[in-house]
């Protein structure tokens, strides 16, 4: 079955909408003491928010494959956005870096493990979201065409 324009719209929208929680979770995991709210580097909270973030991707994508692809894309986009936020003081405000290479490498070292949680939790969320989408669709069909309606 060919990918329709509507599928692409859902894919792109979910990939953009779901990227911001990933960006915040990554940034907060790197710098919890200057972040608000402070989750305290709690991996359970990170996992739960990852699952919750995957739900819209499941709701907006008709195809499971595109839902999962959306998880991969929004995880990557969110991670890159977090890295941009991490660079803000040095790029936008001209603050000086003491050990430039190590400082940026530290971001990768401390946060790359979160990608596993974002993708794993996101896929669980996508499955849950698609289940909700189908369930809602069935309910709407029943309301429109079911026996109660006919009477």
């Amino acid at each position: 079955m060919a990918v329709e324009r509507e599928d692409l719209y859902g894919f792109v929208t979910s990939a953009l909408i779901c990227a911001t929680p990933v960006a915040y979770l990554t940034f907060e995991f790197m710098l919890p003491n200057v972040s608000f709210p402070n989750f305290g580097k709690n991996l359970l909270i990170t996992m739960l928010v990852s699952v919750l973030t995957g739900v819209p991707a499941g709701l907006m994508n008709k195809r499971t494959s595109m839902g999962i692809a959306s998880v991969l894309v929004y995880s990557l986009v969110g991670y890159l956005v977090a890295f941009v936020f991490y660079m803000v003081p040095f790029v936008a405000y001209g603050a000086s870096l003491t050990i430039p290479g190590l400082y940026y490498a530290a971001f990768l070292r401390f946060t790359i493990i979160l990608m596993f949680l974002f993708i794993f939790g996101g896929i669980i969320g996508v499955v849950g979201g698609q289940y909700l989408r189908e369930s809602t669709g069935r309910e709407e069909t029943k309301l429109m065409w079911g026996d109660e309606r006919k009477e």
């Binding site: 940034f27 907060e28 200057v34 972040s35 709210p37 936020f85």
Partner: peptide
């Protein structure tokens, strides 16, 4: 979902400003 996303965007911006 958009509201959820914007909430986290606001958190990110506030945190980046503090940082």
């Amino acid at each position: 979902a958009l509201a959820y996303s914007l909430l986290f965007l606001a958190f990110s911006i506030a945190s980046a400003v503090t940082y």
